[in-house]
Simulated scan of single mutants.
Amino acid sequence: MAGPDDVARLDDVAREAGVSASTVSRAMSRPDMVAPATLARVRDAAERLGFRANPAARALITGRTGFFALLVPDLDNPFYAATATAAQDRAAEAGRRVIIAVTGGEAAREAAALADLEGQVDGFAVLSPMSAAAALKEVHRRKPVVAINRRVSGLTSFTVDTPGGLGRIYDRLVELGHRDVAYLAGPPGSWMDRRRRDELVEHAARSGLRVRLHGPVRPAFAEGAAAAREIAGSGCTAVLVYNSLLLLGMMFEFGRMGVRVPEDVSVAAADDIALADLPGPQITAVLAPAGELGRCAVAALAEMVGAGGADRRPAGRRLPTGVRITDSLAPPRAGA
């Protein structure tokens, strides 16, 4: 066993675990190819000895770094944060790590991150990508790329059926007698926001709903608060919001203005993540599996890397959503 002043080596871990050095190497670089009981012995031995695989040496030997990169527009948005946390957890289960790069939702910064990190990681998961599909596919020719929250032809893509969930909320508003509905749109250029607006327009066309679009805006608390006065003065009796953080800002400002929910206006959000731990009555929201997006993306990257690269492309998925209908939706006030 390595002494307190020694650096544990791969051979030390092999002796401690009672396996060959090649098995230890495989456990570090390709844990999916090692029997679970053996993998546990190797990891326990490495932990006891304080062994840490050298990423540079592993990359030189195997051609793999053990790192993935997750590109996110920001970490203030709780949907993105939940996706990133789940991606890191899933990667750790497979003996990998995730490097997170914040792009600000800008195509130029996203492209720079892809270029800067390409030599340091085994693959990319890009959350709400802003780059052109052709640019993402060009990177994919060299390193596996998975798209999250946007469907990109030619890439493994994972999305959630938020538009379908919003459709059920629209239907409920029609049942309650609403005819004038506001939609506070998300960031400019958002693929998912376009899908949501398309769903809203489709429902409006067949149900007689009048829809007033506000935005686009960044999905931030301050932006929701800033939009509240315009929405309250629009004559709409209900408002649907791109995400829960925007909704919190809008409701905060409604409270300061004396606008009551749901007596004066009904409200709902396209996700519930920022609302999850708040006290008080629950808000109507689409229940979007943000964490599952992160787990699916990392699993797909691991599958592609394990198969030797981007030539094998796992099937993407559109994950189903639930809907929580609450008393934040009510019939429009008399005379509205």
Rank of each mutant, 00 (worst) to 15 (best):
P216L: 06
G165D: 08
G306P: 05
E118N: 12
A21P: 01
A94R: 09
T159I: 13
L209R: 09
D272C: 06
L136Q: 00
F158E: 04
A86R: 11
G186L: 11
V181E: 07
I273N: 10
P314K: 01
R179F: 08
V201E: 07
T159F: 15
L176K: 07
R317E: 11
L70M: 09
L39G: 10
D5T: 07
F51R: 06
V259D: 14
A268P: 08
A21M: 02
L10S: 09
G235E: 00
I100V: 03
M251H: 11
M1W: 13
V13I: 12
A94H: 09
A82V: 00
R194H: 11
G258L: 08
G255Y: 07
D12C: 05
E230N: 04
F158K: 08
R324E: 13
A269T: 00
L71Q: 03
A53P: 01
G95F: 00
R317T: 13
E138F: 04
I99W: 05
M1C: 13
I231G: 05
R179Q: 03
S131I: 01
G322E: 01
A285T: 00
M1A: 13
A290F: 02
L75V: 12
I273H: 13
R9K: 14
L209M: 11
E263Y: 14
D44A: 15
I273A: 12
N149L: 15
E175D: 12
A238E: 04
T38D: 08
A299V: 02
E47A: 09
V305N: 00
L287N: 09
R58M: 10
D44P: 11
T162C: 05
G165R: 03
V261I: 12
G50S: 08
P216Q: 08
G224Y: 13
A222S: 12
M33I: 13
S244Y: 00
G186Y: 14
R333A: 08
R260F: 09
A27P: 12
P262W: 10
D264P: 06
A101I: 07
R218I: 15
P289Y: 00
I283F: 09
A297G: 00
P187K: 11
G177C: 00
L278C: 07
V286F: 10
R172Y: 05
R195E: 14
G308H: 00
D44M: 12
S328Q: 03
N54R: 02
A92C: 02
P314D: 01
A132C: 01
A111P: 14
A274W: 05
A220S: 12
A37V: 13
R168P: 07
P331S: 03
D277R: 12
R30I: 06
N243P: 02
P279V: 06
T284I: 15
S266Q: 02
V160D: 13
V211L: 12
V174M: 15
A268E: 07
S25W: 14
I273S: 10
E47Y: 13
A46E: 04
G294K: 02
L176A: 05
R90D: 06
M192L: 11
E118F: 04
S153R: 07
D327E: 10
A91W: 04
T237G: 09
V261D: 12
H140A: 11
D76M: 15
V126S: 03
P78F: 02
R206S: 09
A108C: 06
R256D: 13
M33D: 14
A125W: 08
I283Q: 10
V98P: 08
A37E: 14
M251P: 06
G104F: 02
E93N: 05
A205C: 03
A204P: 05
D272A: 08
G50N: 11
G167Q: 04
